[in-house]
Amino acid sequence: MHHLCALDDVVPGEGLRVATVSPPVAVFRTDDDEVFVLDDTCSHQDASLADGWVEDCRVECPLHASRFDLRTGEVDQPPAKRGVRVHRAEVRDGEVWVELSTAAPNLPPGVTAGVTTATGVSA
């Protein structure tokens, strides 16, 4: 698993972009302290979902308002056509760890995962 951040780094009700894994992920913490980790880049265009509005266990893309389910990554409405990957998250001793999905990411056209420069701590 990869270490992403401390739970306290994530403001409840908001997202945090973590770019130590590639492609970057967004860590969301609900008001009930549930933690979800999704690919951070909207599948439609280059926008950071961590900047999006979180409500009803969905995050709304800050650019065009497609909403992604925090549990499944599924998208509810255009312009995004594809969901984003979700990653299995775990909180241990106040730290957020993740098991990255092995599925291919649904990155938007023109955005590549780039070279793997992941510096997250493996465990």
């Binding site: 926008a47 950071s48 999006g52 509005w53 709304e60 800050p62 650019l63």
Partner: peptide, 10 residues
Amino acid sequence: QPKLFNRWKR
């Protein structure tokens, strides 16, 4: 300012 923008937009 995407985060703040969306908060004010709402």
